[in-house]
């Protein structure tokens, strides 16, 4: 693909000839051959944490900000609409950007964004949850398949994020935080924007290692007492979603 960088200004005939060559050589034709060269890749690798420790489902008793003990058995969330912003202002938007991350399935915790133009990136942003358009436009597939257990069939919409577990502070012993809703007050979608300099050379790949801290669900801006909120209702959706809005950080780039 580097060859196209030198094409501007070449004779038209040779230009077309090379396009033909390129079409034969590659299975995927570039959409634009003049100024974008989407040959680089960004890997996203997510590690879920509980505070300073890597999250382990079921086995470990954690303490939340309020001092309540809890074990976590399910930790799932959608990441969608990933955007990468370059220092020259160019914004790369991942097409069909819907990723369901499930702690109990390692393969969901890393994925690759292909065809990213090279350059110096400074910001990655994404939604926690699924944008409203994909909650109102009928049957979806892939990571948005309603079979995932992250979909309400009786009140259409995705469960944007889900944390389940147990706690002696809960009157029923359980913690059931299912955050859904795409509009109004019960809107569980939050947008995350993280800054870090990422130099992405042509034809190469970089990995952004993200940390997601499950215990952030229980603090900042609101410290959650599990005895008060053991099951999330529409009324408590905003509180918890505001809390998890800052659960992500960039650990490192490599």
């Amino acid at each position: 693909m580097v060859i196209f960088r030198n094409l501007v200004g070449m004779k038209k005939l040779g230009f077309l000839f090379l396009i033909v060559l390129q079409s034969v050589a590659c299975t995927k034709k570039p959409d634009t051959i003049v100024d974008s060269n989407p040959a680089a890749k960004i890997n996203i690798a997510i590690e879920n944490y509980a505070g300073s420790q890597i999250l382990k489902l079921n086995d470990i008793w954690y303490k939340n900000e309020n001092g309540d003990s809890l074990q976590i058995s399910v930790f799932n969330y959608f990441i969608s609409n990933i955007k990468l912003t370059r220092d020259d202002g160019f914004v790369y938007t991942e097409p069909e950007s819907y990723h369901l991350v499930r702690e109990n399935n390692a393969s969901t915790k890393s994925f690759t964004i292909v065809n990213v133009p090279p350059g110096n990136y400074k910001t990655i942003s994404f939604m926690i949850g699924v944008d409203s358009a994909h909650n109102v436009s009928g049957a979806q597939t892939g990571d948005l398949d309603p079979n995932s257990g992250m979909f309400w069939d009786w009140n259409t919409g995705y469960i944007m994020a889900k944390l389940e577990g147990k706690s002696p502070s809960s009157s029923g012993g359980i913690v059931l935080y299912h955050l859904g809703g795409y509009s109004g007050t019960a809107n569980a979608i939050r947008t995350v924007s993280l800054s870090k300099d990422i130099t992405l050379p042509d034809k190469q790949s970089k990995t952004i290692h993200l940390k997601a801290d499950a215990l952030e669900w229980f603090k900042t801006p609101t410290t959650i007492k599990i005895k008060d909120i053991d099951v999330v209702s529409a009324n408590s959706t905003k509180i918890i979603a505001d809390n998890y809005a800052d659960m992500f950080s960039i650990d490192h780039i490599d």
Partner: peptide, 23 residues
Amino acid sequence: GINHIENQPIAPIQNPVEMDETM
């Protein structure tokens, strides 16, 4: 509660007192 005709059938199929099956 259901906002789209394509999302309709899944509700009775999965309702425990209707068809009680998973998609």
